[in-house]
Design a protein around this nucleic acid. Structure first.
Length: 288
DNA sequence: ATCCTATCCTGTAGGC
DNA sequence: TGCCTACAGGATAGGA
């Protein structure tokens, strides 16, 4: 769903269009996200101008003038949708739209979130680092590329499965369920292995694949598995590149064996047992 | 401290 | 055909 590559795609597109634009009107039409009310947003946003948007992991920081930022997380199904001035790209009948921003130049930016798992709140910039959602985030792998040594140190003593480890936003910020499976397949690591049991040589296979997979996915504007769209309401193209995710029962693109699916920590994992042969220290999880 | 499960939400896919 | 249930997974609270 929206993971680092999808959020970075949205950030880049917003960076090309919203900096310098000032909010003329802000209207909330669906008042509740999962954890908070959006009722305060119009007053907090009207009259503010957007600056260059930033990102850490899956979080967007849509900086505003006046020392504030609009903290945004897309959750499962959040979308920022843009319509330039003089263009009618946004449909008033579109369901599940929470927030409608109209800028002084008549361009528009909407937030839509079918499943309401997203997060949207205005935070003073000087308190952003203390925000409960932001303060625990680990390094962003595109900003600070992990090394074999940093990954091994970070995983030291951890008995969770390496797949689950990659999903932990406190360790690395930005990897989600799609790319975790892809990274481990390309690194030829058994996803059930305990993270703390991987050797330096094995982490040396994982580290470059993190950057390669996320970088390729950014270049293709992310993966549209179900609901993700760019600000132009277009799907991402990385789905064509997926090697194991959502391919259970199909032939492995590397060895021709069968891609398998099982559940780890309540999330689907896809892998090729032949290509990702384990070497002991695996964590058992319920199969399904 | 560490790990694990349940929860939120809605559209979609599958079974009968 | 149509209803019903299970399933998908971001973060996080709370329990073991």
């Amino acid at each position: 769903m929206p993971e680092l590559p999808e959020v970075e795609t949205v950030r880049r597109m917003l960076a090309a269009h919203v900096p310098g634009k000032r909010v003329a009107t802000a209207a909330v039409s669906r008042h509740r996200l999962r954890t908070q009310s959006l009722a305060a947003l119009p007053k907090q946003l009207e009259g503010r101008a957007f600056a260059e948007p930033r990102r850490t992991g899956k979080f967007l920081f849509l900086d505003l003038d006046g020392g504030m930022t609009l903290l945004s997380h897309l959750g499962m199904s959040g979308r920022w949708l843009f319509s330039p001035a003089g263009v009618d790209a946004l449909d008033e009948a579109m369901p599940h739209v929470h927030l409608r921003l109209t800028f002084e130049d008549r361009s528009r930016l909407w937030y839509q979130d079918i499943r309401r798992f997203g997060m949207l709140r205005v935070v003073p910039l000087d308190r952003l680092a203390k925000d409960p959602s932001v303060k625990l985030l680990g390094p962003d792998p595109l900003e600070q590329p992990p090394t074999a040594e940093s990954l091994r140190a970070c995983a030291k003593g951890s008995r969770v499965a390496v797949k689950t480890f990659l999903l932990d936003q406190r360790k690395l910020a930005g990897i989600g369920n799609i790319y975790a499976s892809e990274i481990l397949f390309r690194a030829a690591i058994d996803p059930r292995r305990a993270a703390g049991a991987l050797s330096l040589a094995e982490w040396a296979r994982v580290a470059p694949e993190i950057g390669a997979v996320l970088g390729d996915a950014v270049a293709r504007m992310g993966t549209t598995f179900s609901t993700y769209r760019t600000i132009w309401n277009e799907p991402g193209q990385y789905g064509e590149q997926l090697l194991v995710y959502d391919r259970p029962g199909q032939p492995c693109r590397r060895c021709g064996g069968e891609v398998k699916r099982f559940v780890q920590g309540g999330r689907a994992t896809f892998w090729c047992p032949a290509c990702q042969r384990g070497r002991g220290n695996t964590r058992k999880h319920a199969q399904s």
